[in-house]
Amino acid sequence: MEKIYSHPKSLRNLSTHYCPGCGHGIAHRLIAEVVDELGIREKVIAIAPVGCAVIAYDYWDFDCSEAAHGRALAVATAIKRVRQDNIVFTYQGDGDLAAIGTNETIHAANRGENVCVFFINNAVYGMTGGQMAPTTLLNQKTSTTIKGRDAGLHGYPLKISEMLALLPGVKYIERTSLHSPPEIIKTKKAINKAFLNQIEGVGFSLVEILSPCPTYWGMAPKASLDWIRDTMSKEFPLGRIK
């Protein structure tokens, strides 16, 4: 019998530490599947973030580096510049990419570094206990916005992908989601496109992935998927941005 589906080679056969209903496991797997399908496992160098996915390198089975919080794109810039034949990507959360690392993000994008960025937007800080993220929605309750995010006090959800799309160095940005099988398939296609861009030397590519965090949204896993569909994706519309 023909084997048509199996565990990706680029993903170690381990149970993850992520909470039930978390999106990280799906995102890790999608990246691993694409890496396998493109046959680039032996060329990949990944930069893991600080955040819940800090030990992503325990799950992926290819070369990985940790980076200080927010600095993944500075690290990725250097690795790609000195190893142009390798395939370099960062995997970063919203706090990492759009708060503490905003400077590194904008300038790597503006330099048009030929790397891929997989940006996991779950509108909250997970690892530190559910604080407000730059992408937290208005009225969303977090441990540092217990009455809900108030624009007058905390500012607005930061649409960093739309901001980055203004930069001439940026070649591809798409926002996708993990809330349903069709959206997961679209996410995988976007990841594939980002990698192909790098392989073909097109330049800076970013996929923003809306991802559920049931624990810090205070919802059941199924309800968090619905919340992405009904609420979060209204603030962060899905589709090709650039």
Partner: peptide, 14 residues
Amino acid sequence: IAAINMVYGASAAG
């Protein structure tokens, strides 16, 4: 900060 983290990356790449 970016500069030293780039050095981290380049050094990690050998």
